[in-house]
Write a protein that binds this DNA or RNA. Structure first.
Lengths: 207, 207, 207, 207
DNA sequence: AATGAATGAGCCTTCATTCAT
DNA sequence: AATGAATGAAGGCTCATTCAT
């Protein structure tokens, strides 16, 4: 379906992807303009539809590409030899932020995608999506040393609690920084604050 | 400004509000179509602009209405004599879910509104919004008995942890139920599960 | 056709006429808004169409009324005992300006009407229009003492020349004053300038 | 800005210009309908905005085009070696009428433009407009032999009188011919009549 | 007589998609 | 492979006119 696009030289592919990721990330699916994409990518209007058939197919290709490439790379960086759950989560967050800094508009795109609930994904994307949720789950919880946790509570529930706390802190920071250019932000104070929360979790959830 | 709308009979007002809340909730401000709203509300094309002057005025009216009516009602139900933070949060969640079940699209609308950061609210809405944030804060934290918590960690951070856990659990449930008609859901098992999480928090965060 | 309007009490008729004359004068036929007319006249939307059937009928009524009433009054003030053509023209201009000061929006309306070339006047208006042109002609040229003019040129042609000069000067002044509020203009210098032109005409065209 | 339009084949450009000039000429800026223009030009609804971006840009293009092309051509035909003012004016009128017969709706358009006072022209149009007023003035009055006129009246005032007479006669003719197709009119009798008026002016205003 | 809510055509403009070149 | 001109539906909004009350 998209071989025509894949046969393009690397450079042009990248220009198109950059333009498209950014346009969709900033405007969401409906409001995104194929006109702006081709202009920003420096290609003719007809080619976009020669490569992709329709706006929707382009969108799906971006979803696939961002899930596949980006998340796969990102999950591969997690060291599952680390058996301490909280340390593992720290790693995940760290990789996430590095990746966000490297490919901001792919990340922005994925964020937009998770927010918009487009219900009718084609099945191969549905499958890919589910598979990645599962792999993500595995990378979070596999080979964790449960013996670190206190034994008077259900450990799986503690996992959830910890995950929610990390999501919550992340959202909190995103909200505080809303509107700022992330490239210019010094994240160190946020890491320090974050570690204080993790210390509390260790103190209360670990043996 | 909106008297013409307010003078309509209850029934028609409701049909328009339902249509508009849902359309904006599902699409956000820009992508929402006034054409779809009038069709779904069963009114003529011109009437929406007879009642509201512009799409933006309609949107602001919905914000005001959802903030004022819904949240005010909802905050009023919280009993601030309950001094136990976790019990207080339980109440809040309970009221929230009841309200969500009663007015799902108003809730959905507010969720969308909080996510889109439209910076240029008219000042009366800005004020209303700030006031509600403050009242919400007060209703969460005022008159809480901090002596229930262990004294070897910062209590304010514990508050945040608890709040994030509750948000996290809420999102989890919303995700699990996505697409189902909330009116027909039996929430009891979710409450039971939720209480188990709260028990853990009590066991670990309280003295 | 318009008896219903004619039966209204003087006061309300006047409010409607004022509003309508002004709206059409400022915007021309198409752009004029019946909404603004009823709001400015303080009547309900339905009544305008009860009195007049359609926007076009209202417009035609205003044409009739402005031609009939205003121009007839204005023509009646000209003293046809004045046998000097140039003095007669001076009178005409003077009456015109007085009338313009008294009913600025009726005048403005007529100006607009002459500029817009709506070709399809109903026949009674067509007749009225032609009749007034003729009466205007008669009031300009009847009982003029042609013996004042030099006899080596065609006097009727001189009449035309004089008329065109007066029209030309009038346009010139209107252009110079474009955008100013006419109520606040001191017309004396224009009269002085105008008389200088008339002196030239007398010097050159009279014996 | 308008290259896309300029690249069209001559024929289609002309159809669009004809349609647009006529629509604006007949209705003025606000009332003119882009819908009617595209229908009358036989192009698709979107193309007008592909060529011109907005109704306003199209309007400004027409102004520029009519000022530049038409008036520049027309002023270039005047022979300023003719030192007799009345003969010079004859020339001007002759060129004007030829031009009016060739491009009646461009002429009509310019007439409409001079009547509507849209104050906010873009500066390049403002400049063009001012420059043409000046050139027009110069072409009328430069190198005129004032010694031909009688010396007992102000010559500049005589110039004005002559100009107004010519405008007046022109309007008179336009009014008489209103509604007829100008291409099929035999103008000779009008020229003859006109020369009679000029003879009178010469007889009375010259030494 | 009087109101003003209701309608739907029309306004300018944007957009995804197609197609001649 | 590639361009960009062409299309027409849809966007928010205004308007003359009608009609239930």
């Amino acid at each position: 379906m998209t071989e025509k696009f894949q046969n393009l030289d690397e450079n042009k592919q990248q220009r198109i992807l950059d333009a498209a990721f950014q346009e969709f990330a900033e405007n969401g699916y409906e409001r995104a303009s194929t006109n702006r994409i081709v202009k920003s990518a420096g290609i003719g209007k007809g080619m976009l539809f020669y490569y992709f058939q329709s706006k929707k197919e382009l969108y799906h290709y971006l979803i696939e590409r961002s899930l596949n490439t980006t998340i796969v790379e990102y999950l591969g960086l997690i060291d599952t030899n680390e058996r301490d759950f909280i340390e593992r989560m720290k790693q995940i967050l760290s990789v996430k932020m590095k990746s966000m800094a490297e490919n901001p508009n792919v990340f922005h795109f994925l964020g937009m995608f998770f927010l918009e609930n487009e219900p009718e994904l084609p099945s191969h994307l549905r499958r890919l999506y589910d598979q990645l949720l599962e792999e993500g789950y595995s990378i979070m919880y596999h080979n964790i040393d449960k013996s670190l946790f206190r034994d008077d509570v259900n450990v799986d529930k503690l996992f959830n609690l910890i995950k929610w706390v990390m999501d919550g802190y992340q959202n909190e920071v995103v909200n505080r920084l809303k509107g700022q250019n992330l490239a210019s932000v010094d994240f160190d104070p946020y890491w320090d604050e974050f570690f204080e929360y993790l210390d509390i979790l260790k103190k209360t959830f670990y043996r």
